[in-house]
Design a protein around this nucleic acid. Structure first.
Lengths: 106, 106
DNA sequence: TACCTTGCTACATTTACCGTAGCAATACGC
DNA sequence: GCGTATTGCTACGGTAAATGTAGCAAGGTA
């Protein structure tokens, strides 16, 4: 049912509801984490991997490609991944999550 | 490396950073979508499945269990899944995402 | 030259998810 | 009682995705 994402296809996108496409994109492994780790300064692929608990480079590369196609992440000319203005805007949306998580704690 | 979540274990939880555990939990398939679909009134498991594009009940059940253990979702006595006050609070955090997605559109 | 680090990929294994079917429990009527 | 629907939930075989390790070519630096 759901197609590969490397081609830019996103589950739920056919519904015409952008929120579904966004929720699907962000609901993939490491997507949220990547955005979170890039909230500060740009990171090299290696540094990003370290920040993400040594997640396998295969997935990270997939997610980075998807996030780049979505326009949230970009690869700087001097090397290193950083957030685009759009990506930064998206990241701001998640910031309240930090405070929420602290109160949640489980 | 990451253990099953049915036991309450969440990737990143050992770092002691709740935000990581939260990002991991929400970064699993259908987690965000489920919270989103429950934002209104409670839904029965079947209705929720319909709302989620007929996602397989296996995953939905897993996610519901995890979200229940996290305290975001509860199963009402009269049947049907709904958000807890905490879950509602979390969902509010994602509401700005809707507007963002509309502007994003890809 | 040799040595780094960069972004990125191959490949085999493990895990997660899908799709279909069906369970027990609870309620409806009839 | 009976049959028929619901409910939440699970088994199982097959497929897709993530893991973990290794290593590539390109570029820099000495």
């Amino acid at each position: 049912m759901a197609k590969q994402a490397a081609s830019g296809n996103v589950r739920g996108s056919r519904t015409g509801r952008p929120i579904m496409a966004l929720l699907d994109l962000l609901g993939r492994r490491w997507s949220l984490r990547i955005l979170w780790e890039l909230r500060g300064e740009p990171l090299t692929s290696r540094a990003l991997r370290t920040a993400c608990d040594e997640a396998s480079p295969t997935v990270l590369q997939s997610r980075l490609t998807e996030l780049r196609e979505a326009g949230f992440v970009e690869l700087g000319e001097a090397g290193g991944y950083g957030l685009t203005p759009l990506g930064r805007e998206l990241c701001e949306t998640f910031m309240p999550l930090h405070r929420f998580a602290e109160r949640w704690r489980r």
